[in-house]
Design a protein around this nucleic acid. Structure first.
Lengths: 196, 196
DNA sequence: AATATGAATGAACAGTCATTCACATAATTC
DNA sequence: GAATTATGTGAATGACTGTTCATTCATATT
């Protein structure tokens, strides 16, 4: 029984990597089992099926994302400060968990309707937090943007895209990348940067 | 033979829609044939196979995108003007051909290595044009951005994301959306907007 | 020592996949 | 009108799909 949790975790880890690399539909349960180091039948001792595994991975990630964001935002009150924390947290999280993020973005359409509804609801909660900050900044005359809802989607797309190109052994460190995205985000809402 | 071109075009159109809606791997040749109004065998009179069809769709789109961009940029000289044209063209194109764009973005990994290399090369050419403009604006001290290469990717991700949420019967017209993205893009590089 | 449990196996199941092919039909060319 | 070509059909192919299940095995509990 001590092995059990290890195996389940290993299946999770491997499935996350393979699904993110090749796409959910392009990975068979045999492929997955082989990568884990077992036979396909054994997977079903740990997960109900392929769809349940995908759904589990995505929900786990979304819940963790929201929880971490809540923690990071706790006690932050200024509108500008809240935007800064959101951006920093979002980009850093996406740099730290690229596979989770990529999967959650790309494979929503591979979920059955029920699972999809749950995941999309979580995603909307996340998007709403940013829109809230932007609307706040608009109402106070701090930000200069055309439309808060649209701008929230712009910023999310912009920031989420970091997973597409960032590589760890590249020219820039993660911290530098976070700073670049923060500067761009602040400037996009009409805030001038503070020299660091 | 008059039917021939029509059929081929219809297969293309239908495949584009289905691949974009459900994903390349989730659409079978039977599904496609049925949606076109024929049997699966007949598809092979028009395309070598499924992979060739996908590759054809993506290449056709990328070539059209680059050609249209070249046409739009012809004779535009100022750095700021070039950025404006690029952004307007990019967003408008993405609003007009959402399926093409979505497919080209999502299904790169479903291409075999050879086809992928060709498509990625075309995509890089496109990205390079924007980076060029940004580097130009930086060199002239017009733009205030941290890193031109990174900022190009930020803007592309931001603008391309419009396909994810825009719906034709929504709150905003295409032109309004283009304007919103233009304003955000200009502000993100440190340019103040001109009141329209 | 006997029993129960969790976990892995490997074969089997019913379906689906992309692709091929012999054949029919329709259109075009001579 | 006959020959040729283009186009579509429907069945067949073999490989692969997610899932199930009887069985085995090692470990833990009684």
């Amino acid at each position: 029984m001590p092995e059990s949790k290890d195996t389940k975790a290993k299946i999770r880890r491997t499935a996350l990597r393979l699904f993110a690399e090749r796409g959910y539909n392009a990975v068979s349960m045999r492929d997955l089992a082989e990568a884990v180091g077992m036979r396909q039948g054994g997977l079903y001792n740990h997960f109900e099926g392929k769809q349940a595994l995908l759904s589990d991975l995505m929900e786990t990630h979304m819940v963790a994302l929201l929880k971490a964001l809540d923690a990071a935002m706790a006690g932050i009150n200024g509108t500008r400060a809240r935007l800064e924390v959101f951006v920093r947290h979002h980009v850093a999280h996406h740099l730290n968990y690229p596979d989770d993020v990529f999967l959650a973005y790309m494979e929503v359409r591979s979920l059955d309707p029920d699972n999809r509804a749950r995941i999309v609801a979580l995603r909307n909660r996340y998007e709403y937090m940013l829109r809230n900050i932007l609307e706040d900044g608009c109402a106070k005359g701090l930000f200069s943007i055309g439309d808060a809802a649209v701008h929230a989607r712009m910023l999310l797309a912009m920031m989420t895209g970091v997973t597409v190109w960032y590589r760890d052994n590249g020219r820039l460190s993660r911290d530098e990348v976070v700073d670049l995205y923060l500067d761009a985000a602040l400037q996009s809402v009409g805030l001038t940067m503070v020299q660091s």
